[in-house]
């Protein structure tokens, strides 16, 4: 695996932070036992900092782990663009205080979609490594090479903000930001279908849902201690895997993310059934962007539109 020159700087910085006690732990990634996947780790001892990695196989959104953090301790978080914007949104929602965090920013070249690669090679992946342009994957039958850009997760292809915002220290040089010509292209493509086709797609996809709630657990913005699907008095939606329950789950889960979703795509990557979900949250985010000029995490301290209101709304809606 090619190593970014700043990775060693990152490791020694984390080691120093943990050693001098300025943070109790740092949340990052370490290599796992499977190719194409790395796993989140909490570094509490300086010698453990050496196992930190940061690459395109880091699938999780680490901000989701802040909800499991030890309370009352200062925590370090290694964050890419989406993670830093999730932190901003969580600070606005008072889920975490910015003073409790030490944010270590890293540039992001996009997350590699392990499922795309697995589908391409059609067999078990033994090792994988990446460079700026390429991904090389080894299987029993030999080597496969891919263009990195094409194997990125959809959310990362559409990403406009790969560089972290509002961090305490930045590792490595920022990556060039594009205006995201592909932004919301998934929403536009879906909208171009007829209403009947859209409904057919939505019901067909949600029918595969097994209600494991991995999407919820992976999401940095899903932090309610009692989720509406777990409540039984009143039971808002069916808890079965029947169409009524799965459709309601996907509709309401997405709707709760209106103006809060950072479009990291962690939900989709976590889904064991491979159900597309970002076309739902992206549509809601686009509504917020068009109506209220609101982009999650772009302005520090700004409330999401559905948590605020304005008297100007009187003119926005008819009558």
């Amino acid at each position: 695996m090619t190593t970014d020159p700043w990775l060693t700087t990152l490791q020694s910085k984390v080691a120093r932070l943990v050693e001098d006690g300025s943070v109790a732990a740092v949340i990052g990634f370490e290599a796992g036992s499977l190719a194409l996947r790395v796993r989140p780790v909490m570094v509490r001892r300086p010698e453990a900092a050496g196992k930190l990695v940061q690459n395109g196989f880091c699938q999780n959104n680490l901000a989701a782990y802040l909800h499991h953090r030890p309370k009352g301790e200062r925590i370090g978080l290694i964050c890419r663009g989406c993670e830093s914007r999730a932190v901003r949104a969580l600070v606005v929602e008072q889920q975490v205080s910015r003073d409790e965090l030490y944010l270590i920013g890293v540039p992001c070249r996009g997350i590699i979609d392990a499922r795309k690669i697995e589908a391409e090679v059609g067999q078990e992946v033994l090792t994988a490594r990446e460079s700026d342009r390429k991904i090389v994957v080894c299987t029993r039958s030999g080597e496969h090479r891919f263009v990195r850009r094409k194997m990125l997760h959809g959310a990362c292809i559409r990403c406009r903000f790969p560089n972290p915002v509002g961090v305490d220290i930045m590792m490595g040089a920022p990556v060039p930001e594009t205006d995201g010509p592909g932004i919301f292209e998934n929403v536009r493509a879906f909208e171009a279908l007829t209403a009947e086709a859209r409904h057919a797609f939505f019901t067909r996809e949600t029918e595969r849902c097994i209600r494991c709630y991995a999407c919820r657990e992976a999401c940095p913005m899903c932090y309610c201690s009692l989720c509406f699907v777990d409540g039984t008095a009143p039971r808002w939606i069916e808890s079965t895997v029947g169409p009524a329950g799965t459709q309601a789950w996907h509709i309401v889960r997405a709707f709760h993310q209106t103006g809060r979703c950072v479009s990291c795509g962690a939900c989709e990557r976590a889904c064991p059934m491979g159900i597309p979900m970002t076309y739902l949250t992206d549509q809601l985010n686009r509504q917020m962007e068009e109506a209220y000029d609101f982009v999650v995490g772009q302005e520090e301290g700004r409330q999401p539109p559905l948590a605020a209101f304005s008297l100007d709304d009187a003119e926005r809606f008819e009558r």
Binding site: A195, A197, I251, L280, Q283, A291, F309, S310, F317
Partner: peptide, 23 residues
Amino acid sequence: EGNFRARRQLEAFRNFLIYLGLE
């Protein structure tokens, strides 16, 4: 301000259901 809150939320929800194919 209750009606303002309702408008923002329900308008977005209506658009979302239409997006999913509701008439």
